[in-house]
Structures are given as C-alpha cells and as structure tokens.
Design a protein around this nucleic acid. Sequence first.
RNA 1: GCCCCCAUCGUCUAGCCUGGUCUAGGACGUCACCUUUUCACGGUGAAGACAGGGGUUCAAAUCCCCUUGGGGGUGCCA
Length: 480
Amino acid sequence: MTVRVRFAPSPTGHLHIGGLRTALYNFLLAKSQGGSFILRIEDTDQERSEKKYEALQMEALRWAGIDWDEGPGEGPCGPYRQSERLSFYKKYADRLIEEDKAFYCFCTDEELAEMKEKAVKENRPPHYDGRYRNYPKSEALQRIAAGEKPAVRFKASLKSFILEDLVRGRVVFPENMVGDFVIVRSNGLPIYNFCCVVDDWLMKITHVVRGEDHLSNTVRQLMLYEALDASRPQFAHVSLLIGQDRQKLSKRHGVVSVDHYRQEGFLPEAMTNYLCLLGWSHPQEKEIFSQNEVVDLFDTTRFTKASAIYDLEKLKYINGQHLRRLSNEDILKRCEKFFPKNHPFFDGSNSWKIQCISFFKDQVQFFNQLPGLLDDLFRIDSRGDDEDELKAIRGLESTPVMATYLKSEIERLLSENKAFAQKDDFSHWMTHIKKELKIKGKPLFKGMRAVLTGAAQGPELVGLIPLTPLSVLKDRMKRY
RNA sequence: GCCCCCAUCGUCUAGCCUGGUCUAGGACGUCACCUUUUCACGGUGAAGACAGGGGUUCAAAUCCCCUUGGGGGUGCCA
C-alpha cells in the first residue's frame, strides 16, 4: 500500500516552527516510503482563518524545501481546502443522523455552561449530559423548519478504545472518556475532529503524524472512524516542542515564526536539520545532514516520546555547520544579487574571500545584511559590551600612530584609482606596522580592527578589509 | 477535579523493546589549555545525568508497581 500522509495547518497565523517540524516529519515519512505528501488547509474556523496566512504558510514550507504532491489546486482527492469540502461533511453528518449515530442538539451556550459547572461541582467529568440524545427526530425537524439552528452531536460510544500508536505504543482510552461531542456547529460548519476523519478517510491517508496535543482527542476520531465504517490510518503522536519554561511553545517564547528565521538569514537546510533532531534521532547519531541524506533512513521507530525544549544556540551551531558546507558556487549564487558587479568578491581568485563569509561573527545575519553592503555591511555596529573595550583600545598610544599610517596608505591607494585594498596590501600594512612602527600583539590586532572597522570585534580583517571599499575605510578613519 | 501522555548531563539525545559489554556514549552550551593575522573556526581536555521509593532478578538506566514532578486534553478552536 502506498504511503499517503498529510500536513493540515489552519491558516490562522504564520507557520511556526512546531508546525514546520510536523510537516517535515510527514514529508520525510512519505519520501522515505516513496509515498505522497498532501497539504490540506483546515479553514473551517471562519472567525480565525485568513487567506493571506494560507499563502504565507505555503511559501514558508516551500522555502524549507517541503513541497507537496497534492494540495490546493492540484491532486485527485480535492478540493484540499476544508472550506470547499462542506458538501462531503454534510453528506456524512446526514448519514450519521440517519443512522441514529448523531443527533440535533438545541442547547444554548448558557445551558451548556451551566451543565459543565454543575458537573464540575459534583466532581463528574464535565461532559454533555445527553439532553437531546433521544429527542424525537420529528420534533427536531419541526424546530429546524421553524428556523431554529441546532448543532449536530455525535453519540459517543460507551466502550473503551485502543490505539496502537507508532510513537506511544498501545494507548487505552477508557470508556466514558468523552461525552457526546459536536460535529457540526449550529451555523452549519463542521468541527475539526469530524472534518479530519472524513478527509483523512476520503483522501486515503495511511499515516497521521501530528503533535501529542491531539492524542486525547484521538478517541473521538476513533469513534467516528468506526461509526462511518471507515478504515483508520496509523497514528504517530510526536512529542511537543516546548519553551524554556517547559510550556507548549507559543508566541510568548519569542520567535516561533518560520518567517522570522528566514528573514534572519538562517539557512532552510539548517532549520529543518535542527527541527528534525528535536524529537527524532539519526540511527548513526549523525547531527549534521541534509534532507536528502536523511530521507532514506527516516522511520517512525526513532521518535522520542518526551517533549523537547527549543534551543536557539544549537540551531545557530547547526546553521554555521551548513553555512561552511556551502560550496563557493552556492555562496556566490546566494550573494550575487546583493554585490555590485565590480566588487572584488567576484574577481576570480576569491576562495579565501568566500571563506571569510563563514567568519562573520553573526554569520546568520550575513546574507540578510548584504543588501546594504557598501554602506552598511562593513560598518559593524559596536555592541554595548564592546564600548569599554573600544575605548581602551583607542586610548592606547600606538593606536593613533597606526591610524596615521593607515590613513596615508588608504590615500595612496585611492590616488592610484583603486577602489579596494588587496590582500597583499593588507599584509604589507601588517608587516610595516610590526617592523617599522614596532606595534605587535594585542595593540596591533585590536588596534587595527578598531581603526579600520570602528568595532572591537568582528570577522577576520584579512578577509574583511579587501571586501570593504576604500572610500568606506577612509570615511571611517576621519575620527583619527 | 477527571482522563491521557511523559521522565538519562543546563539543553538536544544514544542506550531501554531483546536486563550483564554502562565506573552511562555523543552533540550544543560552559570552563581550561593549544593553534591562530583578534574574535570566530579548529584541536585537546574538564565539569556535568539514569527524579525518588519499592519490587522481580545472580544482575536493572533497561522489566513491574507506587510516589513525585512536568506536559496535554477536557470547546459550537485546530
């Protein structure tokens, strides 16, 4: 049987990293089995769903290298937006009512709230009390004809259910775990648990990989599969991503939007590499890999059960590793649109220059900084904690001496109509300062940096300076 | 409250199913040293964990139970 999996986001916000991880797991499972990955949009909550988020999420997925075989606009099991599948849900809801497996419920919000309150007070599970469970259908239909709008509730099965979960193992849901639950709202729109079952069934989904937060609700879906006489897929409830405070990861924890990391300049391959490792382990404990490298070994037996704390430090490390793995061509390709054509970056003998990219202290921001290259990239803003160090360096007696010399050198090159210093020029400066000016060690390196970049820390100068226009250097040295 | 899930270094994890090879391995982070045209990178090393208690067993991180802790669900959200 061909594996068919799906990722089913609801377009109520930006794609967040937890969602991306779920999508990735589904994607890898499908690809490892030669199966299909389906994108379904769960937009039955009209209050919160927005079209723009659908587009944004799709773009974020593509950025991360996760492409779908079937999805909105493409595929044999469409439509792939739940808002466009209403007729299916209606059909099966009607059938359940017909078969007396579901019923109309005319309860008001107030009644429901009261019911819940009472149950809690009496130490009972706050379930629906079955008020309309056996309400005569003829009367219900009359009230509907008269304009009343009931919800449709499913008659919860009274037995226990067993789930053989690919991650959790055997999970037993005791009987009476849930009450009769709503499958269609009074406004006519179906509810998640119901749509999900109908769609997964109709779309022939074989494996459902989703967050553990859905585990408890699965019992409802199991009941529906049974009632609809639908084949049920395999489930894999993966651990949740949590924040430093061990709570479910959310906006409170800062940056959870995939778009943010994209804008910051994180590489998509690093992002998915890291996310993949947060809840799954490589059989050889390899930590740095591409999607292609992992796809053949991916399987559901190596999922972790415990939830994982999202850690930015490790993401940065992994990003750095991927950055270093990029070939010169890759880097050039990514830089091309940002550099002016006559920039020495492209002068042919640039391998050392390309190396310097990975030397940037805040390497993750490198690509992001490129647009403002000439004026901004090399004007490295000193950070707050650099200030004292910078002041100390400027206070050294050797620093102005060095500055005077460097200024004259830059003037000389400019008078020769050069736009950039060469690596050799830089070496020459270093030698001169060491031999003739007798400045060495920390005053030399720190001083050079302070004078040429205005910062106490930064990328290696030998890589940086030849990429910085002389005019910018000159401008910077006005203060000396 | 009720139900479900989970529990190895600060963090991500390997090991658990199929007890012994585990004085528990790796990675991030931290610290130290080395290298170096600073920082970074790289190298070497250090500190750092089986939540607690009972069982079962010759033997338990591994199997069972309890406790504790954490998370999730309990919606006419997904």
